[in-house]
Design a protein around this nucleic acid. Sequence first.
DNA 1: TATTGTTATACTCTATAACTATA
DNA 2: TATAGTTATAGAGTATAACAATA
Lengths: 156, 156
Amino acid sequence: MSSPAKPRSALNLQHFVPYRLALAAEAVSRALAQVYAERFDLTRDEWRLIAQLSAAGELKAADLGARASLSKMQVSRAATRLAGAGLIVRAVDPEDRRNLVLRLTDAGQALFRKLEPVVLAREADLLDGLAAEERDALARALVKLEARAARLAARH
Amino acid sequence: MSSPAKPRSALNLQHFVPYRLALAAEAVSRALAQVYAERFDLTRDEWRLIAQLSAAGELKAADLGARASLSKMQVSRAATRLAGAGLIVRAVDPEDRRNLVLRLTDAGQALFRKLEPVVLAREADLLDGLAAEERDALARALVKLEARAARLAARH
DNA sequence: TATTGTTATACTCTATAACTATA
DNA sequence: TATAGTTATAGAGTATAACAATA
């Protein structure tokens, strides 16, 4: 029986963590985007800005970027659109006129109050099949993986 | 003390699973791409094709897409480039001339033999800080999350 | 000179659908 | 008519750097 050459490998993509992580993240991202994009017409970056501003009250653009893991460019563009939609206002910082301070308008806060429970419900849906310890382990593992991956990638 | 309105929220982005998952996946994706992209000049899709072909020996394009979670378009484009680089060959299936059967060339197999240990080492590096149970929980959680997210998103 | 934020541009990815060849 | 794969095209996301205003 001379079957075609079938190289044997220790690497099984189905159980390769970076692959599984990418698939899970993509699927979850879509499932969440259904909420903020389809139902509230926001991009992912806009959603992150609104969530952070709601929690913090007001933030300089640079701080907002740091908290939401967005570049200054992403913040600038998302903020321009949100301001155009009347969801946030931008004011120059009188103490350093290079800074822009962003905060939600009443409309922005109202939108977040509608958005928040739906988003939390979706997260709960996603986590529904996981035991409490599994959720904890997942949360811990994600933070560790991210930190470790960032260090590895930074080494160039 | 009349501080500026600071809405209080149950949603904390820093502990929101879809957010943490997205950040971890992006960081891990970059850390892995350093290996297959910078050191072996492959795209993510090409890397997935090579890994699956190495494990399976040969595959129809459609099956390859299913296993690597790529659309027929992504498979077609990655395969064209890999064939151009002499890493795979494509042959029409004599039993149904619409199918294309792909397999690695000797050069493709040689490349994978060099790539595999480096990629596995990088995965090991990434997982280094996690306890065995944590890794198991992570793997289980990722599969469950993906399945659940796909179901949610499919509901439209 | 250095920093904050904006704008320009190019590149990659993704999504949809038209197209071909086979069945 | 339906399916496998290719090609075309448009849209979204990402990356780099040039730029204006301020410090």
